[in-house]
């Protein structure tokens, strides 16, 4: 049986207590919500906190607040099932509900949290392996080693941003609230992520993610398409989140096209956004945008599927999402 290493487990019952415990324990401590990312990583000895601070008992992290007209605030520790089952979310933020619903399995969604999902460790199949396996390849720079096996000449880690909700949150312009003993800050989801497989979050380890602010819908429509091998279990090897604001005559007023799973952060397809700006989404424009959108996708050979095929699929998926939204 693959087991957890030893650690001290703390269960604060308020945000304040959680922050205090974190401050007291310093860099050896980590928060855990559903544990569906952290515990497998700990069992494989990829992450080895000495102290784990469980968030399950903090009720403030499990509420949904706000009016649809001003936007909705999701507590970071709502489970993915709670998010998808919430009829208001399904109705007003179908892309969020969809992304959450496409994560792994029903069993896992009953445990994993929306906050934990946004903070999910980047993934790479040279890294998501047991200690002994990694030892056999002499480790890699993300943990215990000093080289990147995916791109050995590269000075950086290319582990993949693999959260399904992250690209959606970026596309719809959600904000996240981070709280620590030195205060709190609210940043756009887009700013939460870095183009680096190791330092992939612009978040200090002691910061607690408390809330996710979904902006008022205000005429925007969004969708999310996920590519993976099987209809469940599997992480995205490509996720396309698109959010659009169309004028009355259906021209694109504004848009966000975000690609997940093909780089270390949710990648914005800015050229494609420019192509559709001020235009009606005809089949021709969609094709042109899709062609442009697939350029920034940088899949490498560290996930499931052949990387060239994954890159190509970006085109197909972007076209698909745009078509879906254009039909509305």
């Amino acid at each position: 049986m693959l087991r957890l290493p030893k650690f001290r487990y703390l269960q604060p019952d308020s945000i304040g207590a959680a922050i205090r415990m974190m401050a007291d324990n310093g860099p050896d401590a980590m928060f855990v919500a559903g544990g569906t990312d952290l515990y497998p990583n700990m069992k494989r000895r990829q992450q080895t906190p000495k102290v784990v601070i469980g968030l399950a008992q903090i009720n403030d992290l499990r509420t949904t607040k706000g009016q649809l007209k001003d936007g909705v605030v999701l507590g970071a520790n709502l489970t993915l099932s709670e998010v998808t089952d919430d009829s208001r979310i399904r109705h007003a933020y179908p892309a969020v509900a969809r992304a959450a619903e496409l994560i792994s399995t029903p069993l896992l969604r009953n445990m994993g949290s929306i906050g934990g999902n946004l903070l999910l460790d980047t993934r790479c199949n040279y890294y998501d392996q047991n200690y002994e396996w990694r030892k056999a390849i002499h480790f890699c720079m993300k943990k215990d080693g000093d080289i990147c096996w995916v791109a050995p000449s590269s000075p950086r880690c290319w582990a993949v941003q693999s959260s399904d909700c992250a690209p959606v949150m970026v596309a719809i312009g959600a904000k996240v609230k981070l709280v620590s003993s030195s205060g709190e800050r609210m940043i756009p989801a887009a700013e939460l992520y870095n183009d680096d497989g190791i330092r992939h979050l612009n978040k200090r380890p002691d910061e607690l993610l408390t809330e996710i602010h979904l902006p008022a819908v205000n005429g925007w429509r969004a969708t999310y398409w996920k590519l993976r091998r099987r209809g469940s279990f599997d992480f995205p090897v490509l996720g396309v989140a698109v959010s659009l604001k169309l004028s009355k005559d259906k021209t694109v007023e504004d848009s966000k096209i975000i690609l997940g799973g093909v780089g270390s952060y949710p990648i914005e397809a800015a050229t494609a956004e420019k192509i559709i700006a001020g235009k009606k989404l005809t089949e021709e424009i969609i094709r042109e945008a899709a062609q442009a959108a697939y350029q920034p996708a940088k899949p490498l050979d560290n996930t499931d599927f052949a990387m060239t095929w994954r890159k190509e699929m970006a085109r197909y998926y972007v076209a698909g999402t745009l078509r879906e939204l254009a039909k509305l």
Binding site: N125, Y126, D128, Q129, W133, A136, I137, W149, R229, R230, G231, S232, F233, D234, D304
Partner: peptide, 29 residues
């Protein structure tokens, strides 16, 4: 989908000795 794959260039380790990455059909496939 099923495939025993190895990393020929990396000490010939099994590419993904796990339930997640060795793909086995679910109810949906």
């Amino acid at each position: 989908m099923e495939e025993m794959a190895y990393r020929g260039n990396r000490n010939l380790v099994h590419k993904f000795p796990s339930f997640l990455e060795y793909k086995s059909p679910t109810t949906l496939e």
